[in-house]
Design a protein around this nucleic acid. Structure first.
Length: 855
RNA sequence: GCGGCCGUGGCGGAACUGGUAGACGCGCUAGCCUCAGGAGCUAGUGGGGGCAACCCCGUGGAGGUUCAAGUCCUCUCGGCCGCACCA
């Protein structure tokens, strides 16, 4: 070992050692409890970014910690390798998506290896590899047989200039990102997975996910959104037709002042065929694209069809029928009734089109005859007014009576509705898993035979033309029908990449098997004990994976419902952004900060506009490349910084100073062990009784730190774990080193520091362990246990307050009663002065904590 | 627009179930040392006042509950994440 801390040298050598020894290869072993740690696998975009470094550092700490606790740990890595960026690269750089993707994987694999992660690389998978997607196709066919797959028409964003389907992120303010053309909604026949078959279960089972963050469960609950309501039929006036609406506020029916159809409602489309103005209104709505955010955020607009509907409870009353841009076709029946007084959107709409606003719920305690609605709808509880036979009832009672009456008249039906929609998985793209289906003129839709899987993507494709390359490939799609043998065509859509990531955690259990999963392997390893990834996946990816696991259970692949027993969602990595005078984004490495806080371009010296801290993104160039940090400081410094500055669930501000702090700490730790001020006794030296009290305090600190760090790691409080280890290090630096027995206490302390930081900074810890005279790898050393006798303190400090303000602290033996505490508190001189002779009214005592004297 | 989360010194943050606010680190200040290094060591560091012991004010803002509030409640302001074809 060198005398200087040289991460470049030791990190490479320990990584080689771990790999040589195969220390992180996972094997099924019933003699030990298993622990499956998984971080969300990366999209191979080119280089790893700081978000990856953070994610994989967190996971690696857990993996190494659990190993030290005696668990048989599975910690695999792979690539979420299909996706749009590869096709964009193919267009822009003329490289084939596969070439681009595999090159990126090679680069990123090398970068990850330099982080010293305790991964089982023998299980590496890439979703774009036929060895993976073959099994995805098999799962799809199984789901099809089980009735979980169907086809239906649904909307896509259509770029009329590029003749291409656009992803939502490719639609910017209603226009295609490349062509700038106004986007249209266009209907296509697409494949859907019946996630709604599990709506109730996906919702109910959230309660059992005790090791998931509460907020993620809440978000999923709101996303699935079960609501009990009423489907009501309205008759059109002077036409023999009806409109069905869905509502959860049928108690407010008496306040209805209009009906509104979604622009994509079949009846709206039917009317538009004979109404050019309506057709153009619908076309305008369709230009909002398909994203719900865009639709709901847009100014509320409607088109008056001039048709009227009859109110089901007040036969004489006629309501106007509108087509409105804020009504979603995908939810309920695609039609609503508007009650402006008690729904904000309806109110905005009514004010704009000068419709009636009839209050029908009076807030509790208000004067029913004087209820008026201004700019805000009243959505709370209350008593019904202006509501015929339900006047005077509560919201719940009113609902019940209206439902009963309309059901009795067969004008309505109670219904439970979920906001959750079935999952459209068709993508009109090349770089995805082919959907194993053949379309035959005679037989219709025919699944590809399982013996013919995988349906492999053709390699000879060109991206010169817009649209899906699979569709205009000269030969690929032309095949014989698997059923009748006549000429037929392949499905040219590929899967949504969320399909790929919905079962990869199961594939890791048996990554080379020639079926999707091997029963014994998934039985042993699943569920994932700790899943770690970004909060941005809180809903879709996690919900789809939960669905997939259920679907795989139904089709006999696994025996469980919930794939992730524990979930941790990390925050993002942020950095300031920089712009030159002409508005161009600049990389942090090209900017120099001056002492006065201003910033200039390093090369030209021209001024730079410093933006706020925000999530690191390529588009704003506010990124710091992990490779630069690892080259300069080593992986352990990068890892330590990732863990020490912020709690992992919160966003992390990248700071060069913080990195330097981590680097300096590791340097001083190295010196403490490599260049000790005193010679240490050999390993295993027993610490004798009757130590100097100051040394006993040091030992107490050592053992309290074991307890503290253990608890911190269990609870993902990695930043506090780091703080505690540093406190211990400070304590060891200050200990009275000449006292009798001090050297064996120092040895104990240094060994504990080394073992506690092992999961966080594994390379330096291995080196320190070796320098401390041990020959086995630290990766094999069990987690330290604290000496409980030393952890328990003999005396405690109590805070003493007078009228809630801290005035003194007192030391008492650990075993004191309320009387002792009160006497000691009142006896204190500071307390006497604060009381100023006033009479004591009350004394509150929490033993071991606080005494509050109230005067 | 809807749903969810977060706001504590100059900065990142600590404070388990309401009980000593600011642990640990960064930065800064002063001093020391030196084979001048991406060093190291010592002391100080929330704001205001005082020679001092000590006092007053302080957890985005405004109210409230309580002996006691960063923590609980109501309102409000600011930021972030998701919204179904980015991954």
């Amino acid at each position: 070992m060198s005398e200087r801390y040289n991460p470049r040298e030791i990190e490479a050598s320990w990584q080689a050692f771990w790999e040589q020894e195969g220390l992180f290869h996972a094997r099924e072993d019933d003699s030990r409890p298993k622990y499956y740690v998984l971080e969300m696998f990366p999209y191979p975009s080119g280089r790893i970014h700081m978000g990856h470094v953070r994610n994989y550092t967190l996971g690696d700490v857990v993996a190494r910690y659990k190993r030290a606790l005696g668990f048989n740990v599975l910690h695999p890595m792979g690539w979420d390798a299909f996706g749009l960026p590869a096709e964009n690269a193919a267009r822009d750089q003329k490289t084939h998506p596969a070439t681009w993707t595999y090159a990126n994987i090679a680069t990123m694999r090398a970068e990850l290896k330099r982080m010293g992660l305790s991964l089982d690389w023998s299980r590496e998978i890439a979703t774009c590899h036929p060895g993976y997607y073959k099994h995805e196709q098999k799962l799809f066919l199984d789901f099809l047989k089980a009735g979980l797959v169907y086809r239906k028409e649904s909307f896509v964003n259509w770029d009329p200039v590029d003749h291409t389907v656009l992803a939502n992120e490719q639609v910017i303010e209603g226009r295609g990102w490349r062509s700038g053309a106004l986007v249209e909604r266009r209907k296509l026949s697409q494949w859907f997975l019946r996630i709604t078959a599990f709506s109730d279960d996906l919702l109910a089972a959230l309660n059992g996910l005790e090791r998931w963050p509460e907020r993620v469960r809440l978000m999923q609950e709101n996303w699935i959104n079960r609501s009990e309501g009423l489907r009501v039929t309205f008759d059109l006036d002077a036409r023999d037709e009806t409109i069905e609406i869905f509502t959860t506020r049928h108690d407010t029916l008496f306040g209805a002042s209009f009906l509104a159809l979604s622009p994509n409602h079949p009846f709206a489309e039917k009317l538009a065929a004979k109404d050019a103005a309506l057709a153009s209104f619908i076309a305008e709505c369709n230009r909002l694209g398909t994203s719900e955010a865009a639709i709901e955020h847009a100014e509320k607009k409607g088109y008056d069809t001039e048709l009227k509907v009859r109110h089901p409870l007040m036969p004489g009353r006629l309501l106007p029928l509108y087509v409105a841009n804020f009504v979603l076709m995908d939810y309920g029946t695609g039609a609503i009734f508007g009650c402006p007084a008690h729904d904000q959107r309806d109110l905005d709409f009514a004010r704009k089109y000068k419709l009636d606003v009839i209050p029908v719920v009076a807030p509790p305690g208000s004067d029913p005859s004087a209820v008026t609605i201004g700019d805000e709808a009243y959505v709370g509880e209350g008593v019904h007014i202006n509501s015929g036979f339900i006047d005077g009832t509560s919201v719940a009672d009113g609902k019940e009576r209206v439902a009963a009456k309309l059901e009795g008249e067969r004008r309505a039906k109670r219904e439970v509705l979920f906001r959750l929609r079935d999952w459209g998985v068709s993508r009109q793209r090349y770089w995805g898993c082919p959907i194993p289906i053949v379309h035959c003129g005679a037989c219709g839709i025919v699944p590809v035979a399982e013996t013919d899987l995988p349906v492999i993507l053709p390699e000879d494709v060109s991206f010169d033309r817009p649209g899906n390359p699979l569709d205009h490939h000269p030969r690929w799609k032309h095949v014989a029908c698997p059923s009748c043998g006549k000429p037929a065509t392949r499905e040219t859509d590929t899967f949504d990449t969320f399909v790929d990531s919905s079962w990869y955690f199961a594939r890791f259990c048996s990554p080379r098997a020639d079926q999707p999963v091997v029963q014994s392997a998934v039985d042993y390893w699943l569920p994932v004990d700790q899943y770690i990834g970004g909060i941005e996946h809180a809903i879709l990816h996690l919900l789809y994976s939960r669905f997939f696991t259920r679907a795989m259970r139904l089709t006999g692949h696994v025996k469980l419902d919930e794939p992730f027993d524990g979930l941790f969602t990390q925050g993002m990595v942020c950095h300031e952004s920089y712009q030159s005078e002409d508005g161009k984004w600049l990389y942090p490495e090209d900017v120099t900060k001056r002492d006065d806080g201003s910033a200039v371009q390093t090369e030209t010296g021209r001024p730079v506009k410093v933006g706020r801290r925000e999530v690191m993104s390529k588009s704003k160039k506010n990124v710091v490349a992990p490779s630069v940090i690892i080259d300069g400081y080593g992986a352990d410094t990068a890892r330590l910084f990732m863990l020490s500055d912020s709690p992992p669930e919160r966003d992390l501000d990248w700071s060069d100073a913080g990195v330097k702090g981590a680097w300096r700490y590791l340097g001083s730790l190295w010196r403490m062990v490599a260049l000790p001020a005193v010679a240490l006794p050999p390993p295993g030296t027993v610490i004798v009784d009757g130590l100097d009290p100051r040394l006993n305090e040091v030992r107490r600190l050592v053992h309290r730190t074991i307890v503290g760090v253990t608890g911190d790691l269990d609870r993902f409080h990695f930043n506090r774990a780091v703080a505690r280890v540093r406190e211990l290090t400070n304590g060891l630096l200050e200990m009275p080193i000449d006292a009798a027995g001090a050297r064996s206490v120092l040895r104990e302390g240094l060994e504990i520091v080394t073992r506690l930081i092992g999961p966080m900074t594994p390379h330096i810890a291995e080196s320190l362990w070796r320098m401390l005279g041990h020959s086995e790898s630290l990766a094999l050393v069990p987690w330290p246990k604290a000496d409980e006798a030393l952890v328990a303190a003999e005396s405690v400090t109590l805070a003493v307050q007078v009228n809630g303000k801290l005035r003194a602290t007192i030391m008492l033996p650990k075993t004191h009663d309320k009387k002792d505490a009160e006497d000691a508190a009142i006896a204190s001189a500071q307390v006497q002065r604060a009381i100023e002779g006033r009479p004591i009214k009350r004394v509150i005592i929490v033993p071991g904590k606080i005494v509050n004297v109230v005067v």
